[in-house]
Amino acid sequence: MSEATNNTQAIPAATSRLLLRAIDLSKRFPLSSGWWDRNPSFVHAVDGVSFDLMAGETLGIVGESGCGKTTTGRMLVRLAEPTEGQVLFENESGDLEDIAHLKGQPLKDFRRRAQMVFQDPYESMNPRRTIFDTVAEPLQVQKIGDHAERLERVSETLGLVGLTPPSSFLFRFPHELSGGQRQRVAIARALVMNPSFVVADEPTSMLDISIRTGIMQLMGELADRLGISYLYITHDLAVARYMCSRIAVMYLGKIVEMGETEEVLQNPVHPYTKALLSAVPVPDPEATRDPIDIKGSVSVPVDPLPRCRFYDRCPIADNFCRDNDHPPLQDKGSGRLAACYKA
């Protein structure tokens, strides 16, 4: 598809090493009302998404709730199978390999090197396992270290994410922690493996500014020092501003804008990105904001019509946008990609 080739032009510095390439990824969920339903509808959760991720790079994904961010992340770490498309990931010998074909030892290596921090820290933890067991589990599975070494490594990692003193958390159960404390356990579990790639799905949404900043600094430092790459999914555009070198903005399963973070935030091209930025609340009780320039209400991508996905809500759409297929992601100057006929 043309979108895929367009996308790959956004590769930043030529010196960096490609770690992951998503090629035209799609995920559709059937919505069957029962066994008698011969023509089920489909939710087009992710629809033709392509991008490259360099070693040590943090790519932010922002977008409407339900637009396919989590589903995209899950496909990248092989927790969900794409309906179409491929994920290429650099293997231990430095070659790009389709992760769908991995099995045996190479799959095990991939499972160690690609981690996910789940969006909901309440859902993703076994309530009967202590924090130590939870964080040590991947080490156990991969047979890394003996008990004493694991204890030390887990304690150290808990300390890094601000769960101090670690000894007071090690043998508690998840329900004995606050929301933000669980969220940090989830981060610790992903980082304890020294991964090369982490899908971080809203990893700091329940943390106060100070602890959040600490975690962001930690993740940034690991990216610089060990070359870890992140796909950083967030609703907090200020967090994206500090964490990500590039941002992709998604709307109903599609990337609608992508580019250097500061460029996208200060100079948005796509009408959805503009609306999103104008909706960011300001920390001043006396301030007032302009109304958000978007029409209608949230829709779902069930059997979408062949037109721009944003058509129904777009303040600048015309008949051309209605009568033509969803616009391709195109370079709108200085490496910025946007999918809009009017921008």
Partner: peptide, 15 residues
Amino acid sequence: ADEPTTALDVIVQDH
């Protein structure tokens, strides 16, 4: 409401 909008984009949150 205990952190009711942590998983919402700012447009939906605003609404």
